[in-house]
Simulated scan of single mutants.
Amino acid sequence: MVRNRLHEGGMRARRPQVGVVLTAQHRAGRLAFAREHQDWQIRHWRPVLFTDESRFTRSTCHGVGWHFFGGGRTALHVLARSSLTAIRYRDEILRPLVRPYAGADGPGFLLMQDNARPHVAGVCQQFLQEEGIDAMDWPARSPDLNPIEYIWDIMSRSIHQRHDAPQTVQELADALVQVWEEIPQETIRHLIRSMPRHCREVIEARGSHTHYGDSF
């Protein structure tokens, strides 16, 4: 398993728990989203900027964490040593990364972000509204619907397979940024093309979680 490999190398990646308890409301929201998007093709998903975060640590670095936000082909942004607040999310993610991407993408752009508290805070919602950036109505507790979750696995495996394993937190950050930039565009397109099938799997599961690592 990827998790075991990372632990053996002194490295850990925090992943969302797919087995987290879902309420009836969560399942209903996931089911509604899947039904609405099950027939979307890649041309429908193309204007969507998927975003996500993952926390990587090295056991030798006393648990210092780095959060990596990525989506589409924006730069992989690193947040070190402190928690993400709504202000930081606006000033370090939305303003310098999402806004230029949205402007370049043009009409129809959609931001995909999960329902983490900083993301849905009033200050961030106000910023998106002022900038004319539309965000998808994303169902809560749905990491299995986000293709970037699979990217984290790809990156973790790539880092572990390196002969020059990162020895410090900064080296780990630099290595992950490099791996991110080297991911083939075809890999991203494949993940996007998998979205309709994955939506159908959520429908078959009646809104329950699916195994995204096997499905994408």
Rank of each mutant, 00 (worst) to 15 (best):
P118L: 04
E171T: 08
S59K: 05
P166W: 01
Q129N: 07
W40K: 05
Y150N: 13
H209G: 07
A102T: 02
D144C: 11
P47C: 11
S59G: 11
R141L: 10
A75W: 12
I188R: 06
R117Q: 14
E92N: 13
S59P: 06
D114F: 01
A165V: 10
W152F: 00
V202Y: 04
Q38T: 09
R81H: 09
E8S: 04
D164L: 07
P143S: 06
T168K: 00
S82D: 06
L191T: 04
Q178C: 12
G213P: 02
F109S: 09
S208G: 15
L110A: 10
P184T: 03
M112D: 11
R95E: 14
L6C: 10
R73C: 08
E186I: 09
H190F: 03
H7Y: 05
P47H: 09
D52C: 02
N115K: 13
L6E: 01
G70P: 04
M155D: 00
Q41R: 15
L6G: 11
L94C: 03
S54T: 07
R95S: 12
I93T: 00
R117K: 14
E8H: 06
D214M: 06
M1H: 15
G63H: 02
E181Q: 15
R15I: 15
Y212Q: 02
Y150W: 08
H44T: 07
F69P: 00
L111D: 05
A173Q: 08
A173T: 06
T210Y: 03
P184G: 05
A165L: 10
F56Y: 10
A32P: 01
G213F: 09
R55C: 09
P139S: 03
P196K: 01
H160L: 13
I159V: 15
P147S: 07
H198G: 12
I42Y: 03
F69S: 03
M136I: 12
L84I: 11
V123G: 08
R5A: 07
D164I: 03
E186M: 07
G108D: 12
E53H: 03
P147F: 07
W66P: 01
R30L: 09
R117A: 14
Q126L: 09
P16G: 08
R5C: 07
A116D: 11
H211W: 12
R3S: 13
E53S: 05
Q178F: 02
I183N: 04
R55L: 08
Q17C: 12
L79W: 05
A165I: 12
E201Y: 07
L31D: 05
E8D: 10
R162W: 03
L79A: 07
F69R: 02
R5M: 04
W138M: 02
P166S: 00
I192C: 09
A165M: 08
D174W: 02
H62S: 15
Q185H: 11
E201S: 14
T51F: 07
R27C: 04
W66K: 01
E201W: 03
R81Q: 10
Q17T: 14
D52K: 00
E8P: 01
L79E: 12
G72C: 10
V123P: 06
P16F: 06
L145N: 00
H190G: 04
L6N: 08
I203W: 05
Q126G: 08
Q161R: 07
E131A: 13
